[in-house]
Structure formats: structure tokens, C-alpha cells
């Protein structure tokens, strides 16, 4: 566990640094994929960064909206450096909306653009697992196994390492098989793979967010995403012309 990186007098939070590294690496890979798919790499890169930046702003505004009275009295807090004041659902919605609008405006083809962005999703998933390993978040359920990790005064499933390995595995699957075939297949393969591994691995987590009845929310969400990805895969396969190539 290494939650902060001490560089001289500066204490830098390791998790966000790893996520930034993931954004850089994922965007670089997305640019390479854009080249391979015959898309303008700068436009794809701008779309990814715009989505991420608008997503961050949306996540902060979404959080502030929940506590509107406090933030109305102290609006400068909106630009606080505090990392605990973001709201993921609003951030995702804002980021996706901005990226969609930008993509349409630039005339980017939807499925091929999603294919180009697939490696970004895989790399971010791996970076998130590493960030959780560094901060001690996303910890596993107690377990006495030869590979258990001693964390928070207990031997636990190394759930962050499971997630990292799963992200690498799905990335490998995408690299080997997801970069050929009909437009949109690579993206859906990546999403389906990440959703399936989430459904499987969440069972080993010790900090799951629970719904009524003890259901783990990440598993329920993962199943919904997996179902949508599999249905869409068939629909897009159907609509692809026989012998159609993406590039």
C-alpha cells in the first residue's frame, strides 16, 4: 500500500497519479487504433480528453448539486483539490454526452470510434485496480489463502490484483481477437469482458456496496452491462454487411 508519494515537501496521492498515467497510456493506444482504423487520431484523442475533462467537471457539479446549500454559500469550493467530492454517475453522464456531441459534430463514425476507444477502457480499468491497490480501497473479503494479502489487519483476497489480472486478460483477449471483424465488435468485446470479470470478481470483495437483500450492486450493474453488450453484439453483427471490413 502506498497511498501517497512523498516527493520532497510534496505529498502526492498515488491513486490519481496512476489514473493519470492510465489516461495517458490509454489515449496513446486509442490514437494508434484510430490510425489503424483510418480515423483522424487527433480528433479521437480530443474526443477522449474532452470526455474525461467534462466528466470530471460533471462529477464535481453533480456532487455539489447534492449539497447545493453548502456549495451555494461557498461556490469557490467547486474548484477544491479535494478528491473525495466527485459523483461518478453524473460524471459518466456528462463525459459520455460531451464525447457523443463532439463525435457527431466532427462526423466520426460511431462504431469505429468506439473500437478505437476500446483500449482506453481496458487500460483505465487496470489503472483503477492499481490505484485501489495503492490506496487500500477495493479490499478483498477475509480469506486464508497462500496468496492472501495482509491488509487492514486481516488476511484478505487480493481483490485489487484479481482486478488487475482480469483487466490484463480482457485486454489480451481484445488485442488477439477484438481488432478484426465487424465495426463495433472490439469495443463490445472489451465491455463484455470487463463486465463479466466484474460479475465474477466482485464476489471476492470485502467492501461491496450492497442493495436490499444483500445483492452486490457492482454485480447487478455488471450483469446488466454484460446483457446489453451481448445483445448489441448480435445486432451489430446482423447489420454488418457480409465480408465488411472495418478499415
Amino acid at each position: 500500500m502506498l497511498p501517497t508519494l512523498q516527493i520532497g515537501p510534496l505529498a502526492m496521492p498515488t491513486g490519481p497519479l496512476l489514473l493519470l498515467l492510465g489516461v495517458w497510456l490509454g489515449t496513446w493506444l486509442a490514437e494508434r487504433e484510430a490510425d489503424r482504423l483510418g480515423l483522424n487520431r487527433d480528433t479521437v484523442s480530443a474526443l477522449a480528453l474532452l470526455g474525461l475533462i467534462v466528466g470530471l467537471v460533471g462529477a464535481r457539479l453533480g456532487y455539489a448539486a447534492r449539497y447545493s446549500e453548502a456549495y451555494a454559500a461557498d461556490p469557490l469550493s467547486l474548484i477544491s483539490n479535494n478528491l473525495a467530492t466527485f459523483s461518478l454517475p453524473e460524471g459518466l453522464a456528462a463525459g459520455l454526452l460531451a464525447a457523443t456531441l463532439y463525435g457527431r459534430r466532427q462526423g466520426l463514425p460511431l462504431r469505429r470510434t468506439l473500437d478505437a476507444l476500446a483500449p482506453l477502457a481496458g487500460v483505465l480499468s487496470g489503472a483503477a485496480a492499481l490505484a485501489q491497490l495503492a490506496s487500500g480501497d477495493g479490499f478483498g473479503a477475509p480469506a486464508q489463502l497462500p496468496w492472501s494479502l495482509y491488509l487492514w489487519d486481516d488476511y484478505r483476497h487480493p481483490s485489487q490484483l484479481y482486478a488487475l489480472l482480469a483487466a490484463l486478460g480482457v485486454f489480451g483477449l481484445w488485442w488477439r481477437w477484438g481488432r478484426a471483424g465487424f465495426a463495433g465488435f472490439g469495443f463490445l468485446l472489451m465491455i463484455a469482458g470487463l463486465a463479466a470479470t466484474t460479475v465474477f470478481l466482485e464476489a471476492f470483495r470485502g467492501d461491496s456496496l450492497l442493495l436490499t437483500g444483500g445483492w452486490r450492486s457492482a454485480q447487478v450493474g455488471g450483469l446488466i452491462v454484460l446483457a446489453a453488450a451481448l445483445v448489441w453484439m448480435r445486432r451489430w453483427a446482423e447489420s454488418a454487411q457480409p465480408g465488411q471490413s472495418r478499415t
Binding site: 505529498a11 447534492r66 453548502a70 456549495y71 454559500a73 477544491s80
Partner: peptide, 19 residues
């Protein structure tokens, strides 16, 4: 329920975490 490393924390951030 929350761990806030670093600062300075603003009043709005504090209130959002305890409200």
C-alpha cells in the same frame, strides 16, 4: 465514513461530508 487527506478543507466540503 470519510477520510480526507490534505487540505485546506473548505466549509462546503466539510458540510457535505457531515450533513
Amino acid at each position: 465514513r470519510a477520510v480526507l487527506i490534505g487540505g485546506p478543507l473548505s466549509e462546503a466540503v466539510l458540510r457535505s461530508k457531515i450533513e
